[in-house]
Amino acid sequence: MKWIIKNPSPTDYRQNKWGDYHIGRCLTKYLTRLGEKVETDYYTDWYNKKKSDVVLVLRGKYPYKPNKNSSINIMWNFGHPEDVTKKEYEAYDIILIASKHYSSILKKQLNKPVFPFLLCTDHEEFYNKNTDLERKGFIFVGNTRGVKRDCVLWAIEYKLPLKVWGRGWEKFIDKKYIVDEYIANEKLVNLYSKAKVTLNNHWPDMLEYGFINNRVFDALACGLPVISDYSEELYNLFPKEILYYNNKKEFKKCIDEINLNYPSVIEKVNRASEIIINEYTYEKRATKLIQLVKNFKINN
């Protein structure tokens, strides 16, 4: 089959910095290996006259209006869920949601097939490269978008050896903690394989709708412990493998657990890594996509 992936990433110098770009890139790699033909239309070229068997829309920042032709139209919604209306969902043949919780809600509200389709990692790019290396330091990778992110501020208040990669941080923290505004995707595996802990928090809408960011899967695949704000969706996947906080007091307990029981934390993370390799990879997602399309053709 021929697939066209509608990727919201720009085509200029910013492209490699967009997470959507890498999601599309990884899906293309594994769909191609499975014998599919794949092309990508980036945001500026979404509406053209190309023909395909399947159109897969990566629904992050921008909506796409499907062309009612012979293509099977699939939406994978993994970001900005508050912006997607029921009318937009109904324009698709298959709807994929990066949240088990929210997909169960939409199944009751929509007349189209809805499936949970969580974000994941590329196990060929994210893995533990340094199993014998002592891990050091706390890290945070992410932009501020003009909003204070409590876990970073608390880490500094507790005088943790923190290093930050992301835009906008100079407004909130001393520049000595900021390594750079951006770290290339291909360099993350080295960072995640050497760091002691990564801090994580979700945007409020992601928490509300039960969407898990892909950085959690990338980090765990590299054997890196994660301290994250509490997400019921994430907790249901990894109740013991991740350290959770709801407030500053609980964040401090997470830090204490790292300092006092790090070997035990690592042991749990290693179990999570095995689960991710078996269930939460782009290879698995590509296989599932092909199966969903085959089933759709049989039933329609």
Rank of each mutant, 00 (worst) to 15 (best):
M1A: 14
M1T: 09
K2P: 00
K2I: 01
K2Q: 10
I5N: 02
I5T: 02
P8C: 08
T11Q: 12
D12S: 12
D20T: 14
D20G: 15
Y21D: 06
G24L: 05
G24S: 09
T28P: 06
L31Q: 01
G35M: 04
K37R: 12
V38D: 03
Y43C: 07
T44G: 10
N48R: 12
N48C: 13
N48V: 14
G60I: 08
K65N: 13
N69L: 10
S70M: 10
S70P: 07
I74T: 07
M75N: 04
N77F: 02
F78E: 00
P81Q: 09
E82P: 09
K87H: 14
E88I: 10
A91R: 09
I95W: 03
I97M: 00
K100Q: 14
H101D: 13
Y102K: 03
S103Q: 01
S104E: 11
L106Y: 01
K108I: 08
K108R: 11
N111D: 12
N111K: 13
P113K: 02
P113C: 05
P116M: 02
L118W: 09
L119R: 03
C120W: 00
H123P: 10
E125L: 14
K129T: 13
N130I: 11
N130V: 11
G137V: 05
G142A: 11
N143Y: 12
V152K: 01
K159A: 11
K159I: 07
L160F: 00
L160D: 03
L162T: 02
L162W: 07
K163P: 01
K163H: 11
R167E: 13
G168I: 03
W169I: 01
W169S: 01
F172M: 02
D174M: 00
K175P: 00
K176I: 05
Y177D: 02
I178V: 00
Y182C: 08
Y182I: 11
L188S: 09
S193F: 04
V197G: 03
T198Y: 08
T198W: 05
H202W: 05
D205G: 07
D205L: 15
G210V: 08
F211N: 02
R215L: 09
V216G: 04
F217W: 03
L220F: 04
L224R: 03
L224G: 08
V226S: 05
V226W: 04
S228Y: 10
S228P: 05
D229A: 09
Y235C: 00
N236K: 15
P239S: 07
K240C: 11
E241I: 02
I242E: 01
E250M: 12
C254D: 07
E257G: 06
E257A: 13
I258M: 09
I258S: 08
L260D: 12
N261Q: 07
Y262N: 06
S264K: 14
I266N: 07
E267R: 15
K268D: 01
K268G: 06
V269I: 07
R271W: 08
A272P: 01
S273F: 01
I275V: 14
I276V: 06
I277M: 14
I277N: 12
I277P: 09
N278Y: 14
N278C: 13
E279C: 13
T281G: 06
Y282S: 04
E283T: 07
R285I: 03
I290Y: 02
L292T: 06
V293A: 05
V293N: 01
K294L: 10
N295E: 11
F296I: 00
